[in-house]
Nucleic acid binder design. Sequence first.
RNA 1: GCCCGGAUGGCGAAAUUGGUAGACGCAAGGGACUUAAAAUCCCUCACCCGCAAGGGUAUGCCGGUUCGAUUCCGGCUCCGGGCACCA
Length: 883
Amino acid sequence: MQDIQDQVTNQDAVGGYDPQAVEAAAQQYWTAKHAYEVKEDTSKPKFYCLSMLPYPSGALHMGHVRNYTIGDVISRYQRMNGKNVLQPMGWDAFGLPAENAAIKNNTAPAAWTYQNIEHMRGQFQRMGFAYDWTREFATCRPDYYRWEQLMFTRLMKKGMAYRKNAVVNWDPVDNTVLANEQVIDGRGWRSGALVEKREIPQWFLKITDYAQELLDGLDTLPGWPDAVKTMQRNWIGRSEGLEIQFAVEGEAEPLTVFTTRPDTLMGVTFVSIAGEHPLAIKAAQGNAALADFLAELKHGGISEAELETQEKRGMDTGLRAIHPVSGDRVPVYVANFVLMGYGTGAVMAVPGHDQRDFEFAHKYKLPIKQVIGLAAGASDKPFDASVWQDWYVDKSRADLLVVNSGALDGKNYREAFDFLASKLEGEGKGQRRVNWRLRDWGVSRQRYWGCPIPVIYCPTCQAVPVPEDQLPVVLPEDVAFSGILSPIKADPEWRKTTCPQCGGPAERETDTFDTFMESSWYYARYTSPGANEQVDERANYWLPVDQYIGGIEHAILHLLYFRFYHKLMRDAGLVHADEPATNLLCQGMVIADTFYRENADGSKDWFNPAAVDMQRDERGRIIGAKLIADGKPVSIGGTEKMSKSKNNGVDPQTMVSKFGADTVRLFSMFAAPPDQSLEWSDAGVEGMSRFLRRFWREVTTHAAGPDHAVVDPAALDAGQKTLRRQLHETIQKVSDDFGRRHAFNTAIAALMELLNALQKFNDASEQGRAVRHEALEVMVLLLNPVVPHVSHALWQTLGRPESVLEDQSWPQVDAAALVRDSLTLAVQVNGKLRATIEVAANASKEEAEALARAHPHVVAFLEGQTVRKVIVVPGKIVNIVAG
RNA sequence: GCCCGGAUGGCGAAAUUGGUAGACGCAAGGGACUUAAAAUCCCUCACCCGCAAGGGUAUGCCGGUUCGAUUCCGGCUCCGGGCACCA
């Protein structure tokens, strides 16, 4: 099957479009000319186009192809519009997969990583992406990470980096920390042991110091998608509330809670604290049942999804808190849904007006007290302590007021909030406070393949930053890696050093940085290759990034750290801008059909789409699928994200060998708008190949004919005018779609329509050939951002002496060519389409209405009815309302 | 559980500011060319009724606003992304 198709492609290539030859020639030309190497140039506006750097996982996948084609199209479009365009590429080279591959293949993570980079760089070059490769770097090289080590030591000195205990997933069999993805159903993925929570000291960056600025900065980013900004706002989670102190019987220190609903204070019937709260730990001494419960709470993972979906459980500590207003004694419960890391690790429970507290109170038979009531006239059902209703928790409604709360009765949320805030502040029992959901960024990892944290621990001087003249702290690359313990932790020698302050024996930190650290500032390093500091003055020519492109899965974490780190660099005097990127485009996933057979034990074998034939009925509907190898049926699974586990990945390399890079680029831009998921279709790719062959033939046939004249707009006949109008409408649409809307799919559709029109345009007259020539030249230029190799070749076919298509400017719209004499209007009767009419472009509303009412279909529909109203929207529609 | 998206023919999609739903492409069916196949070209193609002219229905579901709703509002269902140690 595949052999036949390859033969066909080769036969076709003899007289026509041979993508392999065309692409090799164009790429050689660009390389020889250093076509994409750029320098700072103040004579042109700059444009920094950046796609998120890849993790070198081994080979390019379709997600990469899509991401980087989008960036390349935007870069080439901007360059043709006169911008000085920087488009760099590099490697996010540290990370967990290298360690996993090292265990599996018995190779060092470094060697595996460098090998992958070599392979993937070649694949990128074969795609024809316009990168300035002179700026390339891998983040695992000391000359890259030394600068983030330097920044970290300076942040330590500023107090922006600090150490505290934090909870990790602990595998008690392997005695190692696990990443969340290594915890499967509460067990370690390798040992199978039940995972425990454990606290260990870790380094943090004070991102919360920037919480307000990170929040406010979102309002200065109109070029970012609203979905991303909303997710970041919610993640940062600013809330205003009160910190309230509850005295605890027999304890010197009061228990502090944070609440956004002080108006419900009189409804407090108990207090909930986290299992890690000091009071809980203290109460468990001498309370075996409670100690057992706390031990039980240590099972399971630490991810929020896991904590929030587990069954809500609690236990009375035996402690009693004193209500700060009523003086009532209320029980203190340990509850598994209270997070030590959020707020104070303690919450006041108001089961009457908080759904989680309501369910908890029912489960543990705790009192429920109504303190918010419906005003007269509200349509809701009255308060009923046995059934939860959504209005109990609403604080925004004017018809809900405080009840059963003494001095607070009759007040609304705001009034009750202010009243209590003043009262408690006056009594020293509480204060107003802004609380953030955002937590400080924990940057310590107990893994080997990462950037060493540049800290020295001295028994006398404590944690000391590595002095700047001793940086970088280099990670040894030539190591034996067993997979459990980091080689720099296993090696007793590596850590030995002397204290930079007292000169005594000391030990190095053996943890490494979170890999988000490297990807938080790489965009700035591209601007300053070779700089002997983190970035130099060149950064301020290129930054901020004009267009950033990457997956929506990075909407929160990466993009928030990226914005934070930029502000750290700004405050260190390295860059001027407040935000790192002005425009952001988030592309969707690449998905494909899945096929499987179920084994006797219920497990599934997954088959690659390339190994399967689809069966269709006479209407083209899919009715089944067969494995090509044995001709027997396979089950059709869903259409899912391309992945190894479902074996539904389509290898870009295979596609490029078969169809050429231009066809693959064209398909990935045409099949869906960039922000939606893209369903891979081999047949669709063949369609794109067909389009390029047709275009090639159209250009070469025309170029082989007699010389063409210059277009004389005054001499054109109606058909020539119509084609030329479509041409200039296409320029207008493609420019808008590429430059503003990033709707590459509709731009390509418009170009296909133009080619269809051109093929029907059988006009060998002098002006006919002139119009055709103009159209073909324009098409080559408009297609260039998407299929640069084909355009490079055809530009020369059209007889242009310039060999550098790259420096041709973008076609301009001739406004005179767009003028129309008449327009088509839709005519509706009562909102339903009944006719269309052709009216002069300058026709008045009255003329349009008269023409519409005279149309025979309209006359028929209006028979026996009275026209009540006529709506005329010029250029669009006439709607006659009758009855 | 919480936050953010999405849903339109057999399939991928289009309709940009509330104004002709289905552009463009794929698949499918019919035909031309050919000894034959491939390639190429032409025609049909949302669904239902009808010989046709034409009519009715339709943008996940239920309701609302409007002369007019894929688009705006309210309530659902299902699918996807993220949830701080995957990147």
